[in-house]
Each structure stands twice: as structure tokens, then as C-alpha cells.
Simulated assay, not measured.
Amino acid sequence: MAVTIKDVAKLANVAPSTVSRVIANSPRISEKTKQKVREAMEQLSYHPNFIARSLASQSTQTIGLVMPSATDVVFQNPFFPTVLRGLSEGAHEKQYGLYMTTGKTDEEIYDGVVQMVQGGRVDGVVLLYSKVEDKILTYLQSQDIPFVVIGKPFKNVEEITHVDNDNFRATKEVTEYLIGLGHDHIAFVGGNLNFVVTIERLLGYEKALRDHHIPLNNDYIVHEQFLKEGGQEAVRELLSLSTPPTALVVADDLMALGVLNTLDEMGIVVPEDISIVSFNNVLLSEMSRPPLTSVDINIFDLGYEAAKSLIQMIKNPKEPTKRIIIPYELIKRYTCSHPNIERTVQV
């Protein structure tokens, strides 16, 4: 026979309503009583019926997640499993589940979000990206549903709660790090320009060059997908130039891995012949050969804070709009050195 709230109440010597309040984590219940009830729940192996609770409270206890593109592409990049771990932990702490959109095209993903919202399947939504033009964000703004963006919104920044790094400042600093090593032929390998993170990092790179009176060479700016193949294509294009760069700022570790593999195939040695700084500091940064110098953007924290902020908005509709900036750190490994002025890179 299934264990009920009444069974838990009897063992804990409290009223069934008190058990319900403990399950809902009501502030009206003392920590001592909560502990006693939770111990009874554990002893009886009692698990709350969240479906029944949802019907009663008009709450799904679920957060919707919106990916930037098809999941088969997204999960090739280690950024997303890591940010999902943060979201999962932040949701789990408040007894929320996660509901992920699926779809192979932007249109299918949009339709999935509409069904998710209109069907009342979630209490709020997290966008795991920020685009320049995004009808999903526009749609969410038109609906009476809380949402949080991971990344800086392109428009209406003060009106949208978002969790982000200072990508402009971070890229300016890493470009200046390369300049400090003596490089003045520095290229930028970025992702899709429809993503705000790409624009912010590009602007930081350009600002560093201007501040140090280094001419901006448009041939040194290449945009590809945030995938290993994107890095491979970018580096071949850059090294085919008559004056190839001596250093690269790469917007993503997976792209940087593609860069390293291609350079190895070409017989170009890192960092003796060319230096590389990347972003995200995922596990493959340490495992690459040589280990990548990379900016740790604390991906887990991006997800954790997004879930935490969204649940606060769900519980309190008057929660003020927030801009949460997650700190970053340049992790110096073995892909940067002074430029080798004695050797001209040949393709």
C-alpha cells in the first residue's frame, strides 16, 4: 500500500497540513519541525505526488529550457552539458524539474516553445543563449510568464533578467595579454554574429587593438560555427594570408581544438610559431596538446544562477529585474608565448 501524507504526519506527530507545508518549504514551519517531518518521510520512503500538487497549486514545478539550435548540434559543444548541470542543480534545490525543447530547425524550436507556454507545461523559461534577432524572446516578452536569458540581451537590457559574463572586458584583457607578449598580428576567430556573445567579444578584441594603436585588419576576423570544424576552417583561411597572424583569440574551446589539430597537420608548432587564447575552459582545454590557455567563464555558475533567479521570479512576480555578472579568470597554460620573429609561417 502506498505511503500517504497521513502516514508521515502520524510518524512525525504533526498534522497532515504541516507535512504539506514542509513539502512546499513554507517559511511558517520551523527548521526543527521540517527536519522531523523530512526524517519521517525518509524513514517511510515517502515521495510527494508532484502531479497532484501541481493540479492543486496551478504550478508545474518545472522550468522550460530553450536551446539555440538542434540538440544534435548543441551537445557537440561541452558548454551546454556543463551549463545544464548548473541549471539542474539550481532547479533540484527548489524541487523543480527541467523541460527541454526539441526541434531540428528554428521554426520547430519556436513552435515547441509556444506549445510549452500555451500548454501550461512550465512555470518559467530559461533561454540558454542571446541572439540579435530572436522571435522566441519577443514571444516570451509578450506572454505572462517569467523568463531568464543566459547571455546579454541585444535590446531592452534593463527590462530582462539575465546572467552573463563581461565578455567585452574579458576579450579585451586576453587580447592585451597577447599584445603584452609582443604580438601585433592578432586574429579573432568568432562564432555566429547573430549571437550577442560573439559581438561582445569582437568589440573587446577591437578595443584592445585600438587602445594599443594596432591597425585593425579585417582579414584577421573570421566567423565560423562554435564547433571543431569551425576552428579548422578558420585557421586554414587565416594562414593562407600573405601575412598570417602570429596569435589567435578563439571564441570557444571546441573551435580552438579544431585549430590545434589543423596546425599540427600543417606542421605548425604551438606556441613557438603561433599563440592561442580561447574561451570556456572546459575539460578538453586541459587535455589538448598542448593544454590550452583559456578563459574560465564559470559555465556551471551561469546555469545555477539562471535557475535560481527564475525560481525567485516564479515565486515572487514582483521580483525586480536583475543583471547577474559571473566572474571569469584567464587560465594560463601552454599555448601562448612571445612571437617567433625568425620564422614566417608557411602553408
Rank of each mutant, 00 (worst) to 15 (best):
N217T: 12
N217D: 15
N217P: 07
N218V: 08
N218T: 10
D219V: 04
D219C: 10
D219H: 13
Y220N: 08
I221K: 15
I221Y: 14
I221Q: 14
V222L: 15
V222M: 14
V222C: 15
H223I: 09
H223F: 15
H223N: 15
E224L: 06
E224G: 10
Q225E: 12
F226E: 10
L227M: 12
K228V: 10
K228A: 08
E229M: 08
E229V: 11
G231I: 05
E233F: 10
E233D: 12
E233M: 12
A234H: 02
A234E: 01
V235Q: 13
V235I: 15
R236I: 00
R236L: 09
R236S: 06
R236H: 04
E237M: 11
E237S: 11
E237W: 00
E237P: 01
L238F: 05
L238G: 07
L238C: 05
L239D: 07
L239A: 07
S240I: 00
S240G: 11
S242I: 00
S242V: 03
S242F: 00
P244R: 00
P244F: 00
P244Q: 01
P244E: 00
P244H: 00
P245A: 03
P245N: 04
T246K: 04
A247L: 05
A247D: 03
L248S: 04
L248H: 09
L248A: 07
V249L: 05
V249W: 02
V249P: 01
V249M: 05
V249Q: 01
V249F: 08
V249A: 05
V249T: 00
V250G: 01
V250Y: 01
A251H: 10
A251S: 15
D252H: 01
D252T: 00
D253G: 06
D253R: 07
D253N: 07
L254R: 13
L254E: 13
L254I: 15
M255V: 03
A256Q: 15
A256Y: 13
A256F: 12
L257P: 01
L257K: 04
L257V: 13
L257G: 01
L257F: 09
L260I: 07
N261I: 02
N261K: 12
N261L: 08
N261P: 00
T262M: 14
L263H: 06
L263D: 04
D264E: 15
D264W: 12
E265W: 05
E265P: 06
M266S: 11
G267W: 04
G267M: 03
I268D: 06
V269R: 14
V270L: 07
V270S: 08
V270T: 09
V270C: 07
P271H: 09
P271G: 08
P271L: 09
E272H: 14
E272W: 11
E272Y: 13
E272M: 12
E272P: 08
D273M: 07
D273C: 07
D273W: 08
D273T: 10
I274G: 06
S275N: 14
S275I: 13
I276W: 10
V277T: 14
S278N: 09
F279A: 04
F279N: 04
N280C: 08
N281C: 03
V282M: 06
V282K: 02
V282D: 06
V282R: 00
L283C: 03
L283I: 12
L283M: 11
L284V: 09
L284D: 07
L284H: 06
S285G: 02
S285F: 03
S285P: 01
E286P: 02
M287R: 12
M287D: 02
M287S: 05
M287P: 00
S288D: 07
S288M: 09
P290W: 04
P291G: 05
